[in-house]
């Protein structure tokens, strides 16, 4: 019973940590066909933005959090103008963009090292307490992360399903040419998607760095895990990405608990390798669509 609770608790907090990042990754893939390798760096930007504002300005933590969303907004737009805008028509876009975003990520991370040094920092947006569940403590921070991830998912679903711009995003994702024939300005929609992803990534970055120490490279592992989650969910499938975040969180916890912490991450990677070999488009995946 204790084992179950331990795995449940740590899997839940892991899942909550990765859910928002996975959604950001999945959204961009589904609608632009872009595997955004700079997502890890965007998580770091969010974390550092909140940290810097609260640390160097007389700003309360919640304002720091909100302002970091603004910084994420700008980061998404910059990424669009530096890469996507010039590349999306190229036939090899889907692979070139991976390389381009890796390059951008390296630039951002090293800039963060220059500005903030590589030493770990502590996120001000942090709740230390927890409640006792049997013999296991459920941290409030995990519950907050879970709540915010849920809110992000709900707002995004509402936006995509209920607004005109959201429907246009889905239309572009399903058939770019047909959407253009309806008069949808594809470049504007891409910019919109990048900006939304930037905001979600920033939020996710703040949540993440509240749980693990913040360094410029803090986004590497979450990025890889978000990949795994999205591949298993089928890239572009948002609800499946959300659910898969938790399933994978529990899987990782269970492996760590049973076989030792060093096998948690490799086990996930092996899982994704198996999934890719077995189902080239992910377990719930089809080719490339955004679904909500």
């Amino acid at each position: 019973m204790t084992a179950f609770l331990v795995i449940f608790e740590s899997g839940l907090s892991l899942g909550a940590m990765y859910a928002a990042a996975s959604i950001a990754l999945s959204l961009v893939w589904g609608s632009i066909g872009m595997l955004n390798m700079a997502l890890g760096a965007m998580l770091a930007i969010g974390g550092y933005a909140s940290f810097a504002l609260v640390e160097y300005l007389p700003v309360p933590w919640w304002l720091g959090f909100l302002a970091s969303l603004g910084v994420g907004f700008i980061a998404g737009a910059v990424l669009y103008y530096v890469t996507v805008k010039w590349m999306y028509r190229v036939p090899t876009f889907d692979t070139s963009i991976v390389i381009a975003t890796v390059g951008v990520a390296i630039v951002i991370e090293n800039l963060l090292v220059k500005i903030f040094t590589a030493y770990a920092k502590k996120q001000p947006f942090l709740v230390d307490d927890g409640i006792l569940m049997g013999s296991v403590t459920m941290r409030y921070q995990s519950l907050i992360n879970l709540g915010i991830a849920l809110v992000i998912m709900l707002i995004l679903s509402w936006y995509l399903n209920r607004t005109r711009a959201g429907t246009a995003i889905l239309a572009v994702a399903q058939d770019r040419d047909a959407a253009q024939l309806m008069g949808v300005p594809v470049e504007r929609i891409f910019l919109l998607v990048m900006v939304i992803a930037g905001v979600i990534a920033a939020a996710s970055g703040v949540l993440l760095t509240a749980v693990i120490p913040m360094s410029p490279y803090v986004g590497h592992e979450p990025l890889l895990k978000a990949f795994i989650i999205c591949v298993i969910a089928g890239l572009g499938n948002l609800p499946a990405a959300f659910v898969a975040s938790f399933v994978l969180g529990w899987f990782e916890s269970a492996v760590s608990y049973g076989a030792g912490a060093r096998y948690g991450f490799p086990a996930m990677l092996v899982l994704v390798i198996i999934v890719l070999l077995w189902k080239p488009y992910g377990v719930f995946g089809r080719r490339r669509v955004t679904r909500v």
Binding site: M87, I99, N110, K114
Partner: peptide, 19 residues
């Protein structure tokens, strides 16, 4: 760090502009 920044920027510049 500027060295890595430069490599990142060079890679981006080539893949975007001079493929």
């Amino acid at each position: 760090e500027w060295r890595m920044i430069a490599f990142g920027a060079i890679t981006v510049a080539f893949i975007v502009l001079l493929r």
